[in-house]
Design a protein around this nucleic acid. Structure first.
Lengths: 393, 393
DNA sequence: CCCTTTTCGTCAACAACGTGGACTTATGTA
DNA sequence: TACATAAGTCCACGTTGTTGACGAAAAGGG
């Protein structure tokens, strides 16, 4: 009976929606004439003019120089997003870093800052205070470029209650039931899982034309998956969907903090991988791992192959249940891809699902660390473009 | 970049949408006064009156007797759906039956018919012709009650290309690349997987107030899952999501037609279960199985326990990836539930996912066979209620 | 160099639709 | 019988997209 999304529409609703339509097309096609916008949207030229006028009045767009699109005829006026208009702030609490990122309405990166430092031992309040400091710096830096931060999104590595802004359980930070709402003074903030936001980062900033249907594997200490369908994140009933890390990879494998046995992240997670490869904690252990793999170290190769097989098996289950178009590996995996992907592909192809059609291609994210912050900031922009009402006077 | 759903809104769009809002509220609250509709929807009384007038003109609703809701004041006029208005036709091609079902706009069952008979040996064309016959009978029967069938949906047991109306692969029917579009003369028909429609059947007709977030396990010869989130079916990128039957239940188990090994449906599917229990093909083998279980037959009990454990393991994976609120067992499982559910719950609870919160409750569908036809017909109604435009003059 | 063609953007009249308040009708209570 | 209360309708109005005409600005042809 729950048929959400069927809500009364009044004139004001119609207006906001149509403003969003025009704004999105402007964002997507950057310098665009009103005439072209009319073609793109299906509105009449008059309506486009009116809507653009409103957006202009709100300081979101500007008229630029005349441009010549066709062969003959009067040139149109290029409408563009204002570089000094609204912006979105992305923040990330990682296990070993905090980061911030500011995007303008065209999703161009305008500011970026990362602070490394282990957050595992610190009090949640101290971490959140440091994050708020980062946010203040970012807002100030944005203001220096004439940008007004209109909202924020925070990526957190754990299961969280988005409604109430509480981190329910973040095992790798050691957080349980930590309220995060209100940590950011005076900013409308939204909180989401790191894996979900990393997937959105891949959607908007990933190499090439990433279509809107994929599963992004976020390999960190834990392993999460961001499920993107038709350009939107699939979250399940409570927002906990995509917990790839606790699928069973080896039924009689090592015990996991979740109470299970042989969970994927005990085989293919960052720490498990390093342990199996015999690499001690230290500076840049992943670089060490990559070097040993390149050098042909047997222990390291075996660990990578085992991780690849385990990932492939878990992804076979994900393919059966979620039917993604593509699989993208992110997090710590890209540098290890040459050794992990082949066994992964084998396990994936051997697993069931071959019945239906070709197994989805496995790609490797070109994004370095920070897919999640980018996704977080991009999400703020997404929300603004979809509903510019808060930006109007 | 694919941000579907952001489409220009014009006056006509607004109207249709608002008509849908009012119509849905009428369907949901059956005899309702205009004043109450105004409260429910948030429209003014005037607007409600206008919208109801349009719906009345289209023959979708009627004014009934005056009703007295409050203590004092003028009584309101009860607006109801017309019993002799539009209807939805659901059809199902099962492995051993064909069935049809007609629902009115209030989703009341107005006609139902099942023809048993094995479809495995028959030509697809013959099966589809028989189905068309059933459809004709149903349309005629509906007409006899003053109902006009406005659309149809067909449930099919296999993977299908919904865009083009082609059954890509239905292993249990032996169909491959069978076009099903056009089989139904003069009816706008939609085709969908049996598991998806059975889940919708459970949503609309299942016992009690079934919330809009659950996974419905459709246990037949194959095992499919219908994933319902916020009242809508999750289909994945190509419409193949929910293929629970080919998750690996026993890594070194029996080979499967999909090319894998130890697939869930080779352990917990109908035929696998009967085979393991030592029950030969014959009349009502499931009744035989239930009887032997009740009698304490060791072989049967072992088979059921094994199936339960396998289901629990597969569902643990589904819980991690999909985060459902509830799990509902349907298809052949309800009569076997006393023997299958306990080991299933154990395996589900032991499996990972316990980290996040309580494991979702496992419920048993109260719907006998035919959840899929009901879901199919209900889907047609859903579409009509969400967009009554085709019904307007 | 002027004139025609083509395209862009705007303006004014118009139409669709929800809103607000007044008005009528029907019921109950004092 | 008088008054309060609630349901439903009527009419003037505001908002918003549409239609068609018009002026503006460029390119090509004679």
């Amino acid at each position: 009976m729950t048929n959400s999304g069927n809500v009364p529409v009044r004139h004001a609703t119609m207006r906001v929606r149509n403003l969003a339509v025009v704004l999105e097309h402007i964002a997507r096609h950057q310098p665009v004439t009103r005439a072209r916008l009319a073609e793109l949207t299906g509105f009449t030229k008059t309506t486009v003019s009116n809507l653009v006028q409103v957006l202009d009045g709100a300081g979101l767009v500007v008229d630029g120089a005349p441009v010549h699109e066709g062969e003959r005829g009067r040139p149109g006026v290029a409408v563009s997003l204002r570089g000094d208009g609204a912006a979105g702030l992305g923040l990330e609490v990682g296990v070993d870093h905090l980061s911030a990122c500011v995007l303008d309405l065209a999703r161009r990166v305008r500011y970026r800052h990362v602070v490394t430092g282990d957050n595992r031992g610190r009090e949640p309040a101290a971490v959140l205070a440091a994050l708020a400091g980062l946010a203040d710096d970012a807002v100030a830096a944005a203001a220096g470029q004439g940008l007004t931060v209109a909202g924020a999104a925070v990526a957190l590595p754990g299961l969280l209650d988005r409604e109430n802004g509480v981190v329910r359980h973040a095992p790798n930070l050691g957080w349980t039931d930590v309220p995060v709402t209100g940590a950011l003074a005076g900013l409308r903030a939204e909180h989401d899982n790191e894996a979900n936001l990393a997937a959105l980062g891949e959607l908007w900033f990933g190499g090439g034309a990433r279509l809107g249907d994929f599963v992004h594997v976020s390999g960190e200490i834990g392993i999460g998956a961001g499920i993107v369908v038709d350009g939107r994140v699939f979250r399940g009933a409570h927002g906990f969907a995509g917990e790839l890390g606790h699928l069973v990879a080896e039924p009689s494998g090592p015990p996991c903090s979740c109470g299970g046995r042989g969970c994927l992240e005990q085989v293919a997670g960052r720490d498990a991988l390093l342990r199996a490869a015999g690499i001690p904690a230290g500076d840049a252990p992943l670089d060490v791992l990559a070097a040993r793999l390149a050098a042909g170290d047997g222990t390291a190769l075996a660990a990578a192959a085992r991780a690849g097989r385990a990932l492939g098996g878990a992804l076979a289950a994900a393919v059966n249940l979620l039917d993604p178009d593509t699989i993208v590996l992110g997090g710590v995996y890209p540098p290890l891809a040459p050794w992990i992907v082949p066994p992964l592909r084998d396990a994936l192809a051997a697993g069931p699902g071959s019945l239906r059609r070709a197994v989805p291609p496995v790609e490797v994210s070109a994004l370095a660390d920070g897919a999640a912050v980018l996704g977080a900031a991009g999400l703020v922009i997404e929300r603004l473009l979809a509903d510019p009402a808060p930006l109007l006077p």
